[in-house]
């Protein structure tokens, strides 16, 4: 951060010259032009690619959702008919509730566990490197690996049920609580936790490493217990990391398709699963409904993230804005 500041001020400062006014001004102007060109050319590839591959698809979806899809002989543009159809359907409203539920609960749990783990491993502990390796392993495998694991462990005939049977807690597979394919979504949320506790852990670990241990230590010498030192000194310092990781975790959970599809109930299910179902209906003239669905998912997710960020900024400002 500081580096770029320096460079910025240096470039903005008047450039001394002993050639006299006109020539000096020319050099300045040429330098400004060259600088702008460098910025533009540097940013062009990344921004260009994302405009085509990221903004483009969203515009296609938006236009279709508003009734312009000539390939399906739908030319009703502009109409909010498809949005209306989706919004009044009870399935949509149920899906909103379940999507929020599947997104928020794991976010809270994984944030709490991930922060605790990061703080614990930031202390003097033997084999921290080995431990850290295993804590990061779930992070680098696809969510589907987590899905397979949760399946192997928590299915009706899975290993957990077998262990419970072996120690006499249950007597048949029927007595094992339904974890997969249930509206409670435990299976889905377990997969999220498997991936996201490690995610939170590494983000917060990185922030903690930057903060250093002195803040906590000085708080301890000033009479703060471990808990108080964490609450008043460490937590405010790592809050940006906690907010970032929980935000990304929420954003992911909100839009995840394969996990609720594989391990959730058929009904009620989440918005992305419903959206793809609509997309695959045989009657292609109803595809704009699917497009309306995904636009709504995007907008809803955006609203939640915006409100969360705004709440955080307010809280930050109330503390004096650091």
């Amino acid at each position: 951060m500081r580096r770029s500041d320096n460079v910025g001020t240096r470039a903005a400062a008047p450039i001394p010259t002993d050639h006299g006014g006109r020539v000096g001004l020319d050099i300045v102007r040429r330098r400004v032009v060259r600088r702008r060109l460098a910025i533009l050319l540097g940013l062009a590839p990344a921004i260009g690619v994302l405009l085509v591959l990221f903004v483009g698809p969203l515009i296609v979806a938006l236009v279709q959702s508003l009734g312009y899809a000539p390939i399906y002989r739908v030319r009703a543009f502009p109409t909010f008919e498809y949005y209306a159809t989706v919004l009044v359907s009870p399935r949509f409203r149920t899906a909103v509730v379940y999507t929020m539920y599947y997104a928020v609960v794991p976010t809270i749990i994984s944030t709490a566990l991930g922060v605790a783990l990061a703080v614990a491993l930031n202390r003097r502990i033997r084999h921290a490197r080995v431990l850290s390796f295993f804590f990061r392993l779930p992070l680098v495998v696809p969510y589907l690996v987590g899905a397979a694991m949760v399946g192997a462990l928590f299915a009706g005939g899975g290993l957990v049920a077998r262990v419970l049977y072996a120690i006499g807690v249950i007597e048949s597979t029927g007595e094992f609580p339904r974890i997969l394919f249930s509206a409670g979504g435990w299976g889905v949320m377990l997969v999220y936790l498997f991936k996201q506790v490690p995610f939170t852990f590494i983000i917060v670990s990185a922030v903690l490493a930057g903060v250093g241990s002195e803040y906590e230590e000085v708080a301890r010498t000033l009479g703060a217990s471990k808990t108080k030192a964490f609450r008043y000194v460490v937590l405010p310092r790592i809050m940006p990391g906690v907010v970032t990781s929980s935000l990304l975790v929420f954003a992911f959970n909100f839009q995840s398709y394969e996990i609720p599809y594989l391990l959730g109930a058929t009904f009620p299910t989440t918005l992305p699963v419903e959206a793809l179902r609509r997309f695959n209906v045989p009657d292609v003239t109803r595809r704009p409904e699917a497009m309306a669905y995904i636009m709504l998912i995007t907008v809803l997710s955006g609203i939640v993230l915006f409100l969360y960020l705004r709440a955080y900024r307010r809280w930050e400002r109330s503390r004096g804005g650091v």
């Binding site: 230590e217 000085v218 000033l222 009479g223 703060a224 108080k228 000194v233 004096g320």
Partner: peptide, 17 residues
Amino acid sequence: ERRRIGMVFQQHVLFPH
């Protein structure tokens, strides 16, 4: 926290928030 000590660290370590 209960030793009744005061410590000034080399980097001052004032709580920035």
